[in-house]
Computed example of a mutant assay.
Amino acid sequence: MLKEFVEERAAGVLTTTGIPRVDILKVTEPTELFPEIYQPLVSLILQGEKRLLIGSEVMNYTAGQTFIASVALPVIGEIVHASAKGPYLAVRLTFDRAMIADLLLDDPGPAVSSDTPSFCVSHASDRLIDAWFRMLSLMEQPDEIAVMAPLLEREILFRLLRGPQGAVLRQVASIDDRFSQIRNALLRLRKDYATTFHVDELASASNMSPSAFQRRFKTSTGLSPIQYQKRIRLYEARGMLFARPGDVAAVALAVGYESLSQFTREYARMFGSPPARDVRNLRATSPVGPPGYGEPLLG
């Protein structure tokens, strides 16, 4: 029922629903996607299949499964199964940290292990899918959104907290230093991605030893701090070059590279082709264009 409801209302690749932070996604053919920075979110696939590369981990998820992320993650994805008759369909909710924190006051749940990663895939329960359906049904009653959407969002979050992804979701609003300090480090790296940093500085600011900081950081993101910054730089560069093709040297400098040859080498290693050729191919073949910076297009 939810799949049919969503498919009837999906207009193009991305459909804004009028419900705060809730979107519908539809793709009609298998495709590689732009590298993206996923903000903390949950997405539920209703039809089709998606593959994500996060760090060195490859994750597939399909109809009836949810993907959840508690921190900003550099991700490369592809739609594996989709067609005009059976399009990839998904719904997505970007998290409101304050709402999750409020829920945790009433239902704190068990302590979260420092070994818990910041992302996972799991099957959605019938109760969770039902809550999603009632949330999306507000598209037919827009005058009820202001009152009902926050209540239904709380229910979706509550179902997630009580399910197998609860430990990951608790990280979004956790006041535990292990998670809050990593969140702060991620914010700094995303904001100042073009600035050179030393791991010891980040570790000191996080009140951790360098080894403990690196271990916790990689558990959260699947990447070392240096790898994380490099991906942010290259993802941002690709989006900039898509908007301003031909200005490779200026873009390399803007994202923090002092050497054009190093930038070109690392760009080609990440995306399979040198910058100019990659962007030329991308502009010719991409069905969707680049997402806005920090805005996951096909979560």
Score class of each variant (00 low, 15 high):
230 K>Q: 14
33 L>N: 14
219 T>N: 11
249 A>F: 04
192 D>N: 10
220 S>K: 11
148 M>R: 15
217 F>H: 01
253 L>I: 09
48 G>K: 00
244 R>W: 09
156 I>T: 04
253 L>A: 14
118 S>N: 07
275 P>V: 09
148 M>Q: 13
181 Q>D: 15
161 L>V: 11
243 A>D: 14
217 F>I: 08
108 P>W: 01
184 N>Y: 11
29 E>H: 10
254 A>G: 13
166 G>Q: 03
36 E>Y: 14
239 G>S: 03
228 Y>R: 02
288 V>I: 11
23 D>C: 07
250 A>T: 05
27 V>K: 00
87 P>R: 00
7 E>K: 15
122 S>Q: 07
240 M>K: 09
54 I>Q: 02
8 E>R: 13
243 A>K: 14
193 Y>A: 13
124 A>R: 02
232 I>G: 02
230 K>T: 15
132 W>I: 02
176 D>Q: 00
213 F>G: 03
48 G>C: 01
63 A>D: 10
203 A>S: 04
261 S>Y: 09
116 T>P: 10
129 I>N: 01
10 A>S: 13
238 R>F: 03
275 P>N: 11
239 G>V: 00
251 V>E: 01
297 L>K: 10
68 I>T: 14
200 D>T: 11
252 A>Q: 00
23 D>Q: 14
137 S>K: 06
66 T>L: 12
184 N>K: 10
170 R>V: 12
180 S>C: 06
44 L>V: 01
74 P>Q: 08
216 R>K: 12
187 L>E: 03
226 I>P: 06
178 R>S: 11
98 A>C: 02
19 I>D: 12
295 E>F: 11
161 L>K: 12
248 V>I: 08
270 M>L: 12
26 K>E: 03
78 E>K: 15
165 Q>I: 14
248 V>T: 12
247 D>V: 12
288 V>K: 12
209 S>C: 00
26 K>R: 10
235 Y>K: 05
254 A>V: 06
132 W>T: 03
256 G>E: 05
24 I>D: 01
218 K>A: 15
79 I>D: 00
79 I>G: 01
241 L>V: 05
219 T>Q: 13
299 G>S: 15
109 G>N: 03
191 K>H: 06
276 A>K: 04
113 S>V: 03
198 H>T: 08
153 E>W: 07
74 P>A: 01
269 R>C: 09
253 L>N: 15
255 V>P: 05
280 R>S: 14
88 Y>F: 14
288 V>F: 14
26 K>Q: 10
5 F>A: 06
234 L>E: 05
257 Y>D: 04
258 E>G: 15
90 A>M: 03
171 Q>M: 13
286 S>T: 07
291 P>K: 04
117 P>F: 00
94 T>I: 05
186 L>F: 08
288 V>S: 14
240 M>N: 13
242 F>R: 09
176 D>P: 05
232 I>V: 13
73 L>S: 08
114 S>P: 04
207 N>E: 09
64 G>M: 01
217 F>V: 06
